Simulated assay, not measured.
Amino acid sequence: MFHPTRALMAAVLAISGLAAASAHADINVGVTLSLTGPAASLGIPAKSAIDLLPKDVAGQKLNFIVLDDASDPSASVRNFRRLVDEHKVDVVMGSSVTPSTIPLVDVAAETRVPLMSLAASARIVEPQDDKRRWAFKAIQNESLMVGATLDHMRQAGAKTLAFMGFSDAYGDAWLSALQPLADKAGIRLVATERFVRTDTSVVAQTLKIMAAKPDAILVAASGTPGALPQKTLAERGYKGKVYQTYGIANRDFLRVAGKDAEGAIFAVGPVLVADQLEPDSPMRPVAQDFIKRYEAAYGQNSASIFSSNVWDAGLVLRSAIPAALGKARPGSEAFRAALRDALESTSGVVTTQGVTTMSRSDHVGYDKRAAALVQIQSGAWKYLK
């Protein structure tokens, strides 16, 4: 005999079961990294950090799908589309360098899939508009780091400055940040030279810079290619102060630059000198925990800024997921939109490099605590307190 009440209860239970299954659907995280090519020294440690990220949050399983873009912007775009179309990802992390990441901003907006940049340029998230609303990063903007660098130059008595940077979006971003801030600091930019990541010589650029006799030089490069101007300046006998950017904060740079890196100064995330930070620094325990985990897996001194960038992106992402889960199920357009909104509402999340509070107009959220001045001394990083 048919029992309406029993049938209704069965239907309710079936719907409840489906809802529970939907609520616990996996969250797919796409990743595009420069695992080969000129930026491989950045992408490989990032991949190692991906492997260490927790694989669940708020009861949801996280699946990480990693693709190699070979340091090629066109490949990074293809990877993003493949991650969305084939793997139905809810968010994408990447890429390793600015030139391969900036094109992803348009694709993120088009597909309405949040992008968590692992490259540094402020151009990825500024100025905030309809496209950049889908882009976020837990990496300091160039202006914050340039400001700290210029402060040190000014205190050291520098009056003139030269710039040597990549002839791509990375170099463009640092030069754009440098010019107005140098004027405000009373330091005159007397020479500007550029080079390609794959160049094997920068002698011509170095000679032009030295002819201008600057008190200091800022090299805007990342990874091992940043060692080329550092070594050439030393070989040509430049006696002024050489400043770098956080793009060279890895052991491969120290290995390639060798003794010619001695004395170089740069602003970087506090994680690089975690054990040297003040005891009351909020970043110190977070950075030390990350380094302990990473070095337990990959060996002493293996951690780098490029691996911590991934860890920090993971911290911010995990802080946002619970709010998004409260609004929609993973794998849906509604969930991706809710995740975007939750990322924008990030508040007081402590990473290895700072404390981030984001907003509608700020998709980074760091303050001056995220800029630590470091000098290379005897082949090691020395925190300049």
Score class of each variant (00 low, 15 high):
residue 19 A to D: 02
residue 20 A to K: 09
residue 20 A to H: 13
residue 20 A to C: 11
residue 20 A to I: 14
residue 21 A to S: 12
residue 21 A to L: 13
residue 22 S to Q: 14
residue 23 A to P: 04
residue 23 A to T: 06
residue 23 A to N: 08
residue 23 A to Q: 11
residue 24 H to M: 11
residue 24 H to W: 07
residue 24 H to G: 04
residue 25 A to V: 07
residue 25 A to D: 12
residue 25 A to F: 02
residue 26 D to E: 14
residue 26 D to F: 04
residue 26 D to H: 12
residue 27 I to Q: 00
residue 27 I to L: 02
residue 28 N to C: 10
residue 28 N to D: 12
residue 29 V to K: 05
residue 29 V to Y: 02
residue 29 V to N: 03
residue 29 V to Q: 03
residue 29 V to C: 05
residue 29 V to T: 11
residue 30 G to T: 14
residue 30 G to I: 10
residue 30 G to D: 07
residue 30 G to F: 06
residue 30 G to R: 07
residue 31 V to H: 00
residue 31 V to I: 14
residue 31 V to C: 02
residue 31 V to F: 00
residue 32 T to W: 01
residue 33 L to M: 11
residue 34 S to P: 07
residue 35 L to V: 03
residue 36 T to N: 11
residue 36 T to I: 08
residue 36 T to M: 12
residue 36 T to S: 15
residue 37 G to L: 01
residue 37 G to M: 03
residue 38 P to E: 03
residue 39 A to P: 10
residue 39 A to G: 12
residue 40 A to E: 10
residue 40 A to C: 05
residue 40 A to Y: 02
residue 41 S to P: 08
residue 43 G to C: 10
residue 43 G to Q: 06
residue 44 I to G: 06
residue 44 I to L: 15
residue 44 I to S: 10
residue 44 I to T: 14
residue 45 P to K: 05
residue 45 P to Y: 02
residue 45 P to I: 05
residue 46 A to Y: 00
residue 46 A to S: 15
residue 46 A to P: 01
residue 47 K to C: 04
residue 47 K to D: 15
residue 47 K to M: 14
residue 47 K to G: 10
residue 47 K to H: 14
residue 48 S to A: 14
residue 49 A to N: 13
residue 50 I to E: 09
residue 50 I to P: 02
residue 50 I to H: 01
residue 50 I to G: 02
residue 51 D to E: 14
residue 51 D to W: 01
residue 52 L to Y: 04
residue 53 L to K: 03
residue 53 L to I: 12
residue 53 L to A: 08
residue 53 L to T: 09
residue 54 P to M: 02
residue 54 P to G: 02
residue 54 P to I: 01
residue 55 K to A: 11
residue 56 D to I: 02
residue 56 D to H: 05
residue 56 D to Y: 05
residue 57 V to W: 05
residue 57 V to S: 01
residue 58 A to I: 10
residue 58 A to G: 10
residue 58 A to Y: 06
residue 58 A to E: 11
residue 58 A to V: 05
